[in-house]
């Protein structure tokens, strides 16, 4: 079953501070991802991979085309959805693991991972338990669970980020360089986790610099070079 349908999507940025200079990024992007699919976005740096991913997540506005997402049994166009609808979609349907963890001081690592589970109605106990499982799997020592990730290394922060992304079984998962700062051991674990999700029916869209990781996770690729707009 199709989960994401990107149709004729285009994006450009107008920089008012630069006298209104317009930077066209992509145009006419078409892509379909079904449940259990794992598709990699490829192309040179700056081609618009992250941009497209952020548009699917509703983080960037989408001025052209439509981004249809299967949410609660219906198709919703993220490009036209109002903010409350997008918040709903993010809580239930689309998970996003960005490149960097946005750290909030004072919030302990365990809580960072448990929060999305609790937001969906799980009890304190349940959410913490699930969060503990994930942190353990990603080899974050228990002594760090009650600390804020502010002082963690880049790799540790990224693993907390990943744990948070996998805390909820989202039907759609967006991954932007999830293994970038990880060592081999943890990279393999993440590949495992992605694969488990995929086999469980999650539709996955990912950006992977590392060719091996990409190959291990995705059967298909969508090269955005074909949609690049001349600047």
């Amino acid at each position: 079953m199709d989960m994401v349908r990107v149709r004729g999507v285009g994006k450009s940025f107008k920089l008012h501070a630069q006298g209104g200079a317009e930077i066209a990024v992509v145009g006419g992007v078409d892509m379909t991802v079904a449940a259990g699919d794992a598709i990699a976005l490829t192309g040179a740096s700056g081609v618009g991979k992250s941009t497209l991913m952020r548009m699917i997540f509703g983080n960037y506005l989408c001025p052209e085309g439509e981004i249809l997402v299967r949410h609660g049994g219906c198709w919703v166009d993220v490009a036209r959805a109002d903010p409350r609808a997008i918040i709903d979609i993010r809580r239930e349907t689309i998970g996003y693991i960005s490149q960097f963890l946005r750290v909030i001081p004072r919030v302990p690592a365990l809580e960072v991972v448990a929060e999305p589970i609790r937001m969906r109605g799980a009890s304190e106990g349940e959410s913490r338990e699930r969060a503990s499982e994930l942190l353990t799997r990603l080899r974050i020592p228990e002594t760090l669970w009650s600390l804020s990730p502010v002082t963690f290394s880049g790799g540790e922060q990224q693993r907390v980020n990943i744990a948070r992304g996998f805390a909820v079984p989202y039907p759609i998962l967006l991954l932007d360089e999830p293994t970038a700062s990880l060592d081999k051991e943890n990279r393999d674990t993440v590949i495992e986790m992605i694969d488990e999700a995929r086999r469980g029916g999650t539709a996955i869209i990912g950006i992977f610099h590392d060719g091996n990781v990409r190959a291990a996770v995705c059967e298909r690729a969508c090269d955005l070079t074909q949609y690049r707009l001349a600047s």
């Binding site: 008012h16 509703g58 506005l61």
Partner: peptide, 21 residues
């Protein structure tokens, strides 16, 4: 006006862009 992260990460209005930058 809009979703917080969207307004801050993809500001459209000149003043918003100025504020964010």
């Amino acid at each position: 006006q809009g979703l917080t992260d969207q307004v801050l990460d993809d500001p459209q209005h000149p003043y918003t862009q100025l504020l964010v930058s």
